[in-house]
Simulated scan of single mutants.
Amino acid sequence: MDFMETNNDIAIIGIAATLTAIGVPVGYVIHQVSMLFGFVVWNNWKKYYKHEFDLDLIMMQNINADKLKSRFVHLLTRVHELRALTFSFLLSFLTSLTLVPLLNIEISKYLLASYILNFFLCAVSYVNQKYFEGNLKYLTKQIKQL
């Protein structure tokens, strides 16, 4: 085994550990910010609490309460996850667009490709978020009719 390969392996492991140690808290903060702006700000809290409580009451009275609640939680979780992911892609895209001119970075085909990929992934996560939101609204409507 060559000494340089060992040093490179250690450096890669160190970089991965550092990025993980930084990325997890940053991801959590991004998730919290996306919850604030994407959910809390747009909903009347008192009205939403009552809405969710009423749904719980309806589901608890149903023979399939566990299945309904599990499905509701699954869809709500996906909506929140996808909102955070969309916000993260958007934040990454906007940060990159801002830093490139500030740091006088030359625009290359690789940079343009990364912009296109980032925009595509942002669009995909947004469309998926809207799909799950629609699915959640439909389930909520069906639960209210029980």
Rank of each mutant, 00 (worst) to 15 (best):
D2P: 10
D2Y: 07
F3E: 12
M4H: 06
M4Q: 08
T6I: 13
N7T: 10
N7C: 07
N8G: 00
D9I: 04
I10H: 05
I10S: 04
A11V: 05
A11R: 05
G14K: 11
G14L: 08
A16N: 08
T18M: 14
T18F: 15
T18H: 02
T18L: 15
T18V: 14
A21E: 01
G23Y: 04
G23F: 03
V24M: 03
P25M: 07
P25L: 05
G27F: 13
Y28L: 09
V29L: 10
H31S: 09
H31Q: 02
H31E: 03
Q32R: 14
S34Q: 05
S34D: 04
M35L: 14
M35Y: 12
F39Q: 10
V40M: 08
V41E: 06
W45D: 08
K47R: 12
K47E: 14
Y48F: 14
Y49K: 14
K50E: 02
H51W: 10
H51P: 02
E52H: 07
F53W: 07
D54M: 06
D54R: 05
D54G: 04
L55Q: 04
M59K: 04
M59V: 01
M60D: 13
Q61V: 00
N62V: 02
I63W: 12
I63T: 13
N64G: 06
A65P: 01
A65L: 01
K67Q: 14
S70M: 03
R71T: 04
R71E: 07
V73P: 02
L75P: 02
L75V: 03
L76H: 12
T77Q: 07
R78D: 07
R78Y: 13
R78M: 13
V79N: 01
H80G: 07
E81M: 06
L82S: 00
A84Q: 07
A84D: 08
L85N: 05
T86C: 02
S88H: 03
S88T: 15
F89N: 02
F89I: 01
L90F: 11
L91I: 13
F93V: 04
F93I: 10
T95E: 05
T95N: 11
T95F: 15
T95P: 00
L97I: 03
T98E: 04
P101F: 09
P101S: 10
L103K: 14
N104S: 15
N104T: 09
I105P: 05
E106G: 07
I107N: 02
K109A: 13
K109N: 14
Y110I: 01
Y110H: 11
L111Y: 12
L112F: 09
L112K: 09
L112T: 12
A113L: 11
A113F: 11
Y115I: 00
I116V: 13
L117H: 04
N118L: 15
F119L: 13
L121P: 02
L121F: 12
C122A: 15
A123L: 11
V124N: 01
S125L: 00
V127C: 01
N128M: 09
Q129W: 11
Q129A: 03
K130E: 12
Y131R: 13
E133M: 13
G134Y: 06
G134C: 04
G134S: 10
L136S: 00
L136H: 06
K141H: 14
K141S: 12
Q142N: 05
Q142F: 06
I143D: 03
K144N: 05
K144T: 02
K144E: 14
Q145L: 06
